[in-house]
């Protein structure tokens, strides 16, 4: 059996494949089941999840609110994602987002020898540096990254191109070519397929903040330090390079999406999804310093 045949078999027998395919059915052409409720055909329009939280120079509170009202489903989607992430972790990114799903599915079909490893890049730093520029540019009147560089516009058009001339035309414009190149370069050709999501997605950046702030209160992928042997298999498997192993594995909640890849490969079953409980040190109450003293304060042990 060739290696390629093996990849195909695993692809269709993975439960995660079917979860991601379901997200494609909900959001991407030709079905786009959720968009049909609002008579939309893509994320552009009332489902736009990126434009409403950007303030442009000269914009009044009224026009900002009007923009939010215009993309009301996008507002609901982002608020829902951020709120659910606070309690449950980044399920939007790992299980529902069709853009990330397409990147991840595409990367599984590419042989490992052709894939780029981005795990030397501190993802959170790049993500928030880019998000800062994303927010600053329109505020300074220098233009906008909303539509000129949008993963939510590119992926649905990729699926819609066979059915729509307008979608096909997007890929003959310079922005379409560059965006497609980024999707391939930072998506399909990266290990895990989440380079695009992990470095540049503004929605993912907001979601990650919620994941970090809610880490104490909500369910997250966590490592049982007592069981972890520090073998590093989880780090190698993580699609968003959120795991660092220094004697024991540690998970960066700013980057972690609860895809469960790490838990599957852990030989010690040290990784699980759940609420935060006390560490072994915290479970043992602080022991007061022992001293045997007499009534006059004299140390009787001496």
């Amino acid at each position: 059996m060739s290696a390629e045949t093996g990849i195909e078999k695993r692809f269709f027998f993975k439960r995660r494949t079917w979860i991601l395919l379901l997200s494609l059915v909900l959001f991407l052409p030709p079905l786009s089941l959720l968009f049909q409720f609002t008579q939309d055909s893509s994320f552009c329009g009332s489902w736009c999840p990126r434009m409403f939280f950007v303030w442009r120079r000269g914009e009044t509170a009224g026009t900002l609110l009007f923009g939010m009202a215009r993309s009301y489903m996008g507002v609901a989607l982002v608020l829902g994602a951020v709120a659910s992430t606070f309690f449950l972790g980044r399920f939007w990114c790992s299980h529902v987002c069709p853009v990330g799903g397409v990147s991840e599915l595409g990367s599984w079909l590419i042989p490992a020898a052709f894939k780029l490893r981005l795990d030397s890049v501190p993802a959170a730093s790049v993500r928030y540096g880019y998000l800062a520029a994303y927010l600053l540019l329109p505020a300074l009147g220098l233009g906008s990254l909303c539509c000129g560089y949008c993963n939510f516009a590119t992926v649905p058009r990729l699926f819609g191109a066979p059915f729509s001339d307008a979608d096909m035309a997007f890929f003959f414009r310079s922005a379409g070519v560059v965006n497609l190149g980024l999707l391939v370069g930072l998506g399909f050709l990266t290990k895990g397929g989440r380079g695009y999501c992990n470095l540049l997605c503004p929605v993912g950046a907001l979601d990650a903040l919620s994941s970090c702030f809610g880490e104490r209160f909500g369910r997250r992928v966590r490592v049982d330090e007592e069981c972890c042997s520090g073998c590093g298999r989880c780090r190698d498997e993580c699609p968003v390079w959120a795991i660092d192993v220094d004697k024991k594995a540690g998970i960066d909640q700013l980057s972690c999406i609860p895809c469960g890849m790490c838990a599957k490969v852990c030989p010690e079953h040290a990784i699980g999804y759940g609420l935060k409980t006390k560490t072994a040190e915290e479970r043992v109450p602080a022991v007061p310093s022992y001293a045997l003293t007499g009534q006059n304060g004299k140390d009787l042990a001496a």
Binding site: L145, G148, Y149, A175, V178, L182, L186, L199
Partner: peptide, 20 residues
């Protein structure tokens, strides 16, 4: 802003990632 057809804008992501 919003035209989505300019290499300068679309290339910013590439510049940001490569430089980072």
């Amino acid at each position: 802003g919003g035209c989505g057809s300019c290499f300068s804008c679309a290339g910013m992501g590439v510049i940001a990632v490569i430089s980072a």
